[in-house]
Design a protein around this nucleic acid. Structure first.
Lengths: 342, 342
DNA sequence: GTTTTTTGCGCAACCGATTGTTCGTATTTT
DNA sequence: AAAATACGAACAATCGGTTGCGCAAAAAAC
């Protein structure tokens, strides 16, 4: 008793053998009592569980990992050169991922990748630092995916994915896009312009389809709208805005926050007032739209939830029993100044 | 030969024993040849090194970790509720940290902490998932620091620290602040207002001192300036701007980007034009200041380098031999529209 | 030419868990 | 009452490295 007390005070870190000795059983028994596998009597199990509870025992992750070939770490690929626009996405995503991982006693290690350079990914994989990987829409490199398949590292992709072999989670891009567009049309706007990016991206396609869906639902044709795709960079945006204004658009739907930022800049430069002269809305809300002048109506996706789902999926792939609610990550339409009817 | 060829093709993963057998030596010898510790002949070492190079052998991190009680992972504490303003800081910092860690074959695991809740920190520590921790100015909780000391987990703090017992790295706040202030004064501004946050923060103090330094250097007294401290939130900022205008300030130095964002908002609300009516500059550049209207003159700290230094310091604490250049993370004064003399 | 020192390497224990197998005892079946 | 089965727990191997110690051979010192 005295001894135990002392040990507890000095914060002695027990290992499984210490516990076994203390309780007069074998390591095996302790291990099995903890994991619940194998045949151990309830009485013994209770004794073990009580001991580990009062002494705050935690199995050594490294030892357990060595035995089970598991690190209990998941890798998150992050693009090194993602701009300030992209980052809020990763921030929220990461939050969700970390939260879910922690639930299952996994942790997240960050793998910063730069463009098509796989060095860091390879390092983390060959050094066996993670059990699986999560990568996002921003990691376009198919070389990375090929590498992971080759090395048989489980992974999930955050973002749209046409390949059914690759587990992925995504936002409800089409549905959200439709809803935002409907909101604009309901406001009585006569001619919308859709300004979007690279059309080879699946996310672009989904959001385009959602835009069209809204028109269809109201019995209109998407041909009534001005759709300008493959906009990349300020110069493109400038031309796109020109075209929209020329064709008398009274509302602009931006496919993402980067484009929206550029569109805002263009309109300012041209002296076009928002929302007096034209309304603007964006798909994807990066918080900057909240404080910009004017604040911009946008879709805010539940990125936190998206991260959680991605993590859940990966954990499932790793054979963990996860209890998922099966819900799809949602979104919100946030109405702000840029679409106010004055 | 044939067999080896086949193995290489099938991507067989060698362990240290395989190599030993293959070369007709003992595990010990291979291990020592790799680590360079112990007495191994050059000839043998060369044979081992060649084998591991051609067969791309990597020691199993878990096994090595178990033997050496090391995870080869460093934890990075991140505040869960950091806003979009704070995040660019973490992003850049993390980049530097990851880069430096990778150099020494360490990886970064993210530990999301929420306010004063130590759960995640405790989880990561008691589960021995990291060898040390890096935390930043944003983690104010001294409870966290106390906990880490108690558990004897090495850690370094990013940010100002008065306690010499705690290893820390920081930006050159005082020097940078002085330089920015000098720039403003050199532009011929007659009366500067310094708007800063919580004065109990050391960073606030440093920046305040730098501001005063600039005055002193020009033979002026800081009493000529309007200094408004402990500004927290939009309402405070509004009052501060009021006071600055009332006292006829023709330039405002904001102590950080959050305050700057608020000050910009206040000035806009009040219809005060920048830079026509008043000049504005900020300490700390969060990229948003680059694209804001007008763009704002500011100090950009080399946060990437700061992260690297923090990581280096932690690695040193862990007994790794790091070759550091001893340079202090620098900064840049970035002149933008908000201080233009028209 | 003998003694001492140095060099090169292997044995075996250890880090702290997991797990297939064995084995004695208690319980059930025949 | 004997045989078969079920149960609870321990033995020992394993995961893949590191490291203290010992030993023989080679080199240096005497």
């Amino acid at each position: 008793m005295e001894i135990e007390q002392t040990r507890k005070e000095t914060g002695k870190i027990y290992n499984i053998e210490d516990i076994a000795k203390e309780l007069g059983v074998s390591k095996t028994t302790v291990s099995r009592a903890i994991s619940g596998k194998g045949r151990i009597s309830k009485a013994t199990t209770d004794r073990v569980m009580e001991f580990i509870a009062t002494h705050d025992y935690r199995p050594n992750t490294l030892a357990r990992g060595l035995a089970k070939s598991r690190t209990y770490n998941l890798g998150m690929l992050m693009p090194m050169e993602c701009g300030s626009m992209d980052f809020p996405f990763f921030q929220e995503c990461l939050r969700g991922i970390c939260e879910m991982a922690a639930k299952y006693n996994y942790d997240i290690v960050i793998c910063m990748v730069s463009g098509k350079d796989l060095t860091q990914l390879q390092r983390i994989v060959t050094n066996r630092k993670v059990d699986g990987l999560i990568l996002s829409r921003a990691i376009v490199s198919s070389a990375a995916q090929k590498y992971m398949k080759e090395k048989k590292v489980p992974f999930v992709v955050i973002g749209p994915n046409s390949n059914p072999d690759i587990p992925s989670v995504d936002n409800q891009n089409r549905k959200a896009s439709k809803e935002l567009t409907s909101v604009m049309l309901m406001k009585g706007l006569k001619k919308l312009a859709l300004i979007g990016g690279d059309q080879t991206y699946l996310v672009t396609e989904s959001r385009y389809n959602g835009f069209a869906d809204a028109y269809k639902e109201l019995g209109k044709s998407v041909n009534d709208a001005v759709t300008i795709m493959n906009v990349n960079g300020y110069a493109d945006a400038f031309r796109a805005v020109d075209e929209a204004l020329e064709k008398n658009a009274d509302g602009i739907v931006c496919m993402d926050d980067v484009i929206c930022g550029e569109v805002l800049g263009c309109l300012r430069e041209k002296g076009v007032r928002i929302p007096q002269d034209i309304k603007v809305a964006s798909l994807y809300d990066n918080h900057a739209l909240e404080t910009s002048l004017p604040s911009v109506t946008s879709i805010r996706f539940d990125t936190n939830e998206l991260g959680k789902k991605a993590c859940e999926k990966l954990l499932e792939l790793l054979g963990e029993k996860v209890e998922t609610d099966g819900k799809v990550p949602g979104y919100q339409v946030i109405l702000r100044e840029s679409t106010q009817i004055l």
